[in-house]
Every structure is written in structure tokens, then in C-alpha cells.
Design a binder for these strands. Sequence first.
RNA 1: GGGAGCAUAGCUCAGUUGGUUAGAGCACUUGCCUUACAAGCAAGGGGUCACAGGUUCGAGUCCUGUUGUUCCCACCA
Length: 869
Amino acid sequence: MCKHLEKNYDPKKTEESIYKFWEENECFKPSRDESKETYTIVMPPPNITGNLHMGHALDQTMQDTMIRFKRMQGYSALWIPGTDHAAIATEAKLMEQLRTEGISKEKLGRKAFLKRAWEWKNKYGSNITKQLKKLGVSCDWSRERFTMDEGCSEAVKEFFIKLYDKGLIYRGKKIINWCPKCLTSISDSEVNFEELNGHFWYIRYKLVGEDRYVEVATTRPETIFGDVALAVNPNDDRYKDLIGKKVIVPVIGREVSIVGDNYVDMEIGTGVLKITPAHDPNDFEIGLRHNLPVIEVMNEKGCMNELSGRYCGLNRDDARKEFVKKLKEEGYISKIEELSHSVGLCYRCSAVVEPRLSTQWFVKMKELAEKALKCVKDGNIEFVPNRFSKIYYHWMENIKDWCISRQLWWGHRIPVWYCKDCNEIIVSKEEVKECRKCFSKNLKREEDTLDTWFSSGLWPFSVLGWPENTDDLRRFFPTNLLVTGYDIIFFWVAKMIFSSLEMTNKPPFKQVLIHGLVRDSQGRKMSKSLGNGIDPLEVIEQYGADALRFSLILGNSPGNDLRFYSEKVEASRNFANKIWNAARFIHMKLSEKETRKKFNLGELDSIDKWILSRLNKVIEQVTLEMEALDLGLAAQKIYDFVWDEFCDWYIEFSKISNRNSVLVYVFNSILKLLHPFMPFVTEKIWHSFNSQDYPIMVSDFPKHNSNYLSQNAEKEIEVLMSVVKMVRNLRREMNVPQSRKVEINIETTNSNIDEILSKYKNELCRLANIKELNILDKFNISGCAASVNEYAKIYMSLEGLVDIESEIEKLKKELEVSKNQLEQANKRLNNKEFLSKAPKHVVEGAKELVKNLEGKISKLNKSIMEFRI
RNA sequence: GGGAGCAUAGCUCAGUUGGUUAGAGCACUUGCCUUACAAGCAAGGGGUCACAGGUUCGAGUCCUGUUGUUCCCACCA
């Protein structure tokens, strides 16, 4: 038995110690060799509140596979990890904590609150990074960053001030999206629209001085308290004469005028719109156009305020119910319709977002977006797959100003001070003590913090030390690759691009590899509410990290969603075990000394030359796929080669004749090819063959060597394998038990093939369980079963058990198929246009096919004749 | 309303710039505990590549349309 390796690969006994081994040997750090080209990936920072989910697992595995590949290719490869302070999510956790303790945020105070927040971060913030390590991520932990660490905070201030000085940041009173649960503004991209069932209430407004009513359809009757006008389309024949007239707001009794505005859609509802500028962004715009007042009727928690009279204090929903009741009682409602309409929800807490008028800080986007757009259009950043650039273009072309202030405490506090005496706004990195204009000391710092994405937008360069001009920044920026899901293009990718262009004049990365979502086996999004999430850590526990990684990568094309199947992980686990057992076989077969021997290409036989030739083709293909960022195809190529060719054939050959040095060489190459995908098992096996001083992780990725290509050897072994398969096939067909050895007579019409079969007679007999093999021109075929392929005709002696007629039938059927194929091929070759237009190798291929088929057909004919005699 | 993806074996998916007879895993059938591996080996069944046109010597692959499906963006008073 093998003395090094146990029978089955056990990831649990391996992974932790291997990871430690890499860390101790500083394998994760980039090479200090300045002459080496760099390859840099910056990790999308997971939230400190987060737990590893399948999306992370996919994202991280892709990055790790790429960085390992590039590191082995000889780049000075750097992958920088870090975490995100996740303002809303973290603050929500703390608020929850406070709630259980019965303390309010205000009572606690900002300072104490932040102290708690940092304590929370220090306690739980590294959970996610610990989980990442279980996946085997090879990032440089010595460079780990946090979006609120000193350097990143400095970067945020620098960015804010630079944009402010350029006039790209302004403070304004606008309608923004307000989350009444998180109690903060959120940006447009943080609102998710969902189709919900609601109602259309048709409400009658009485015209002043007339006995006529105007009907308005609304979904939000509780905002009537904020009505300041009605609006109709000036082209609407039904209503245009009403423009300028006044109506009385039901229940409230306020007189408001009717205005004409092209925004109003004549098709929707009654074609009359009630205008509530404080609670609807479109109404706000119309209000501006017509100089209408703004009446806010709700507070920050989504409850009605004192302007709503007796409904004051009720939340939106209760106020709506109560007020509708009142309207009904007083006869103002003429109709109620069921209506499905889309409602904006907070992306964090799913509360219905309330459009709210408030003073916030904004980034002026137009100019920034133009540059960011041009950068991608000019090809300075490539999206993979390319179709995602369209999504990016569309977003950039229709962008609105970005609301960056948040009414939260956990985050980067906006570096702005207000003079209470002269209203001067002072933007500064340092604490401001005195107004620069009136020298008053009566200053107040801005309470709000910045949108989390404001700091993560700087991530690719802030982690490298920007705004300082550090060695790392000079050496590793711009970065090479960003890997992320398509769901985050607007949130993050776009923001990094314009931030980087504005601050560094360079794109933050050269390529963006976009992946899809990991769904459950039924294709549903994994979500907490559905409870269908699968914990990657549990999968690792059960199958190992390599198996999880491989199953996420194998056979997935870039950008496509994938379904998670434990069967697929199982298959990957089996593959890891397959490699493991191949290693055991080699250990068992070879002494340590033998594994060190080198081979001389000139002395090798065709079997060795064949596997070397195939290996080199695979190396070439895998390298190409990796460079094209198609990891799924690369993994598939390795899988197929290892299992189908190396294990099923080459190892079997090596049981029959000694093939020591090539066996070891090919296997080591396989380990290297596979290492970026399955780092743990490959490193572990590597150690069993090689000194621990040379981790596979920092070894050289195999390079394609055309000297190893051999068309002849590939052809010879193809002939050998095809005959083995034919015999095996015939045995099954004739129900010959596996244990029974058979006598086989082979007839070929080609002396080359005779030669190959004679040369590998031993292999042929062992692999097809043949007792006696005759390679002859003619023999007695009575009692034989026959099979034919393009290289040979075989007869299997079965001592009278064979029904000659059914043998003939079988051969005839085969003949029919071959004739059809020949006809097709000849048709092509007789077509002048095919000959003149098709590329040479295709024509050659067709000719070869015809030759093979003709050979096969003549053998079949002969065979049938022989049976007849 | 605008845009994108997907549709290939029973299931989940691959299929490079069009090029012989369309692949894998799982599942299924049959036979093997053959000393690396039963987490395995061998053999096998199973496909009008959604539908209809078109381009081409040649289409799963390119173009147009249709259907089904998933998603994104915008708007929804």
C-alpha cells in the first residue's frame, strides 16, 4: 500500500494546514522582483456585517483562480483584501442592539454610539475574512484594508474636497428617496421597484363657484393634505378650459388652482393629476414650473404631521385607511379600483421608500459620467462578457445627480462646517475652529455621513495608499482585473470608474469580469426570506473547498447565472479524489528515486509521445481560455484530459509497461494546471512528490512546448485505442463475461496498422482481455463474431455460439450507416464550390473521412461475404 | 414603454472566428469489488439543437421574424 497517502482524499485533514503553510511561507505576497510585470486584483470588499454566501464563494473563487494563474505565470501578483463598513447594515445591527437594551440613539449620543460601532466592528468584522480563508483565497492579508481605516478615510476627504472645489459637489433641497425605517436618504440605485397590489381611489374635487366636480385618481389619498394644485394636460380637450380655475381640496377645504402641464398623461386615471410637491418627485418638478408652494405633511418616520389635523401621528398606512373612510363618508369617492403598480422599496430593509423633500449633498454627475463613458467606449476598460458594457452605457447616459449624504452616524462624516453667524460653508480635512469669513467661532459640523459607495468607489486606489503617492500605488495601479456580479455594476463599478478617472486620470482596472448569480436548484434567487440559501461553509465541511470551487467554475460561461447542485459538488469532490488516487498509484509504482528521473524525448515510444503531445495541446488550450477569462472552459479541458486520457488510458498503459519519468512529468504538469482551481489538494499531493521548499502555488505554470507535439504518436495511439474499444464493445455485445479471455483475429489492409498492433500487442491483449491475438490475412471465421472500423476488422472466436445470420444483419446495418456517411462526404467533395471555398484543412478532413469510410465499407463487404461462404 | 439573456439528452449545463458523425456531469440499462480510485472500471440507450424563414458550398453557431422564459432600466398620478 501507498505509504504517503490515505485511500481517499480528506479535505478536512488537509485544508487548514495547507492554508497555514502558504501563510507562513508568505506565498500570498507579490514578488519583490521589480523586473516582473504586475498583475493586480482588488477584492470587492464584503460587508463587515456579512456572512459568506454562495455569491461570495463564486466571486472569490474566480478571483483566486485568476490570481493564482497569473502568479504561476510569473507575474508579481497582488490581490488586496478588505472589508466595507456597510453603513446602513451596520447601523441597523447597532440599532437592534440598542433596542433590546431600551436605549435610543439620540440618548446615547454620537460619540458613544461610534465607540460601540467600532467595538462591534472589532468583534465581528473579521468573521467574513475568516470564512474567506476557508475557500483558500490567496490574497495578501498583510495589505488588508477597511473602508473606514485611516488611509481610506483620508482618501474620502481628499475626494470630497477635490470634487467640491471643482464645483462637482453641491448642497441642495430636493426630493430624495427616504427610507422611513432606516431613517436616512438613499440614492436612486438603492431603490428597488416591485410590482405590488394597491388601489386607485377616484376622488371628486369641487370647482370653486360652480356646481361641477373634477375627478382625480390617486394611489395615495393621504397626501391630499399636501395638495397645492391640480394639473391637466393643456392639449386635453376634456379639461383644457379648466386651466386657471380653482377647486376645493376635499375635507381640508383649501382652494387650489388648476394648472396646465405637458407632463400629465391623458391616458392615466382621469387625466387629472393632483400635485403634492413635497411627496412626489414629478409633482415637485411641476411645482417648480408653476411656482407652487410645498407643503410637507409627513415626518421622517413616515407618519403624518400636525398639518394633517386629526390624523397627526398616524403612520402612512393607517392615515390612508382613516382618511379614505372620511372621504367616503363625505361622498368624495366615486370609485375604487384594484391596481397593480410598482412601488419603490429600500434595498436594505424593503420598507416602502418615501419621496421626501430635504437638504442633502449631491455629486453633479453629467461631466463625470461623460468621461467614464468615453473611457469604456475607447476600450480602456473591457467588460467581459462585452454585452455588459451596454448596460453600463445606458446607465451612464441617463444618469442623475447622486445623493451622497446619509442621516447615519456610522460612516465617513462629511468634512463640512457651517458658520452659524454668517452661514459660510467651510470644507476642510481638519477640524475647523474659526469661520474663515467672519472669524466667528460659532461653528457647527455637518451631522451627515457619506454614502458607503462614496468610499468604495475609491477602493481600487485608496487601498494602494492614495492620496499618498506610495510605492504600491506606482507599482500596482491601475489594477488589471475586477471580478463582480452584474447586479452591482451601477452600485459600484460605475462609481469606481468615474472616481478613478477624476482623481488619478487613469481607469481603475483594465478588465471587468462579470459573473451571474448563484441560484438554488430550482433557479430561484437564494434569499433569507425564502430560506433557500446554501451555506458555502457547510458545503466545504462536507465536500471540501476544492470541490466547492471547482463546481462553481466548471462548465459555466461568463456572465450566466448558475444553479447550485450538490450533485455537481459531489462530482467535483470525486474528481479531487481521482487525482488523489492517481498520485497514490504513482507512489505505489515508483520509488522516490524513480520520480526524480528525467526523460529523453528521443528514447520514448509512441504511448509516451502521445500523452506528451496531448498534454501540450491541453496546456495551450487551457492557457488561452484562462487568458480569455473563460474559466469554465479551461476547467472542463483539464477535467476531460485528466480523467479520460491520463487516468483511463495512460495510467492503464503504465501498468503494462514502465513509463516512470513521463508519468511523473505529466502528472506534475496536471497538478500545476489544476492548482488555480483546486489549490488545496494539488498542494498536498505536490508535497508528497516534491520538497516543501517549493510550494506548487509559486511554481511555474506549464508552458506549451511544440517540440512535444507528435501527430504520428497521436495517430498510432488512436488506432490502438480504437481497436481496444472495438474488442470491448464486441465482448459486451456477445455477452462474454469479463472474466473470460477471448481469442481475437485481426485483419487489416494496411501494413502500418499491422505494425502498430503488433508493437502494442501486449497493451491490446491486457486492456481488451484477449487470450490469443492473431494478426493475419485470412482465417476460419466459422463461429466468430465480427466487428469493423476504419482501421481493422476483428473476429472473436466464440466456439459455435454465434448466429451467423444475425452477425450478417449487424454488419449490414453498419454498412448502411457507413454508406450514407460516405455519400454525404462525397457530395461535399463533388461540389466545386466546397472545394474552392472551404479552407484546406476542412477539405483534407473530408478526403480523409472518405478514405476511412471506403476502407471500412470494403472491410464490411468482405466480412459479409466471408460469413456467407 | 426601452433593453439584455436564455431555449441543445430525463435534469443541470458546455459547445472558441460557421467546418466531418453535437459533448459532459447527474440520472438510466448491463456487466465488473480487474491491487490507484465502487467517490471506481467497462459497455450501452437517450437529441428534428424552441418554431418559421433567410444568408452560405456548409448553420446548434450568422441575419430576420414568432413563441416561451428570466432579468435589467424607465414610468406608472
